Every structure is written in structure tokens, then in C-alpha cells.
Amino acid sequence: MNKIKLILAVLSVMAGVVGFYYLRDSATVIRVLVLLLSIVLAIVIAWYTDQGRQFYVFSKESVEETRKVVWPNRKETMQTAAVVFAFVVAMAIFLWLVDAGLMAIVRYVMDQEG
């Protein structure tokens, strides 16, 4: 029974997308409303499946875990950004030097053959 409900939910979303493009001559508000209603219908149908309830529990736990994260303050963010920027500049200079060196070697070898 769960599989049938999930198939109905997917078909609902597909019908909304088809309706969105089928009503291309209608007002944009109507097209978007049809699409949103089909998505809401799919969510309601999926809610009554085991997978839908498991997804809801997973989402709820994810939000709780996100609230436990200690986010960096402005100073830490700026310091980290400065380190990343300095590393990018250093790598760019290093790769430019390697490229220039290899190009010089290739030019030297090509002149020797001729």
C-alpha cells in the first residue's frame, strides 16, 4: 500500500509539472498555483506512508542537530577567509612558476632539435 501511495505522490508532482507547461498560455500565477498544489498534494499523500513519516523524523532530528552546531564568530570567519585567500595566492604563484619553468624547458628542447 505504501508503494501505491508513493507512486500517487510522484504522479501528482508529474501532473503538476505537465499542467505547468500545458497552461503556458495562462497567467503565471495560475501555472505556479497548479504546480504548488500538486506538490502539496504529493506531500500530503507521502505523509501517510512509512517512508514519509521516517523522512519527517529524520528532518526534525536534523534541525535539532543543526541547532547544536557552534558557528564561528565574525573574527574567526575573517581569519579563516584570510588564510584561504593567502593559500590561494601562494598556490597561484607556485603554479605560475612551475608553468613558466616547464615552458622554458620545452622552448629550450624545441630549439635544440631545430
Rank of each mutant, 00 (worst) to 15 (best):
V17R: 02
W96H: 09
V57R: 01
R74N: 07
E64K: 05
V106P: 08
L97Y: 12
A15N: 02
L95W: 00
A90I: 11
F94W: 01
V13K: 02
M78R: 11
V109F: 14
A9Q: 02
M103I: 09
V109E: 13
M14W: 08
L35S: 10
W96D: 00
V18W: 07
I39E: 04
L97T: 03
Y56S: 12
V89I: 13
L97E: 01
I43S: 06
V17M: 12
F55N: 09
F20S: 04
V17P: 06
M103D: 14
M110F: 05
A82V: 08
M103L: 13
E76H: 07
K60E: 15
L23N: 11
R107S: 14
T77L: 09
V88P: 02
V18F: 12
Q79D: 15
P72Q: 01
D25E: 15
F55V: 03
L37R: 04
S38I: 02
M91K: 01
Y56Q: 10
V63S: 10
A104W: 12
T77G: 09
K60V: 05
M14L: 15
I105H: 13
Q112V: 11
S59N: 09
S38L: 00
E65M: 05
V40A: 15
T28W: 04
R24K: 13
K60G: 05
L23H: 04
L41C: 10
Q112T: 14
D50T: 09
G52W: 00
N73Q: 06
V18P: 01
F55T: 07
E65H: 10
V109L: 15
Q54E: 09
A81V: 06
F85I: 06
Y108L: 04
V70M: 10
E113T: 15
D111E: 12
P72K: 01
V98M: 00
A27P: 13
G114M: 05
E64W: 08
E61L: 02
V89A: 06
I45W: 03
Q112E: 06
G19D: 06
S59P: 03
L36E: 14
I43Y: 10
R74M: 07
V98N: 00
F58G: 05
A81E: 04
A81T: 07
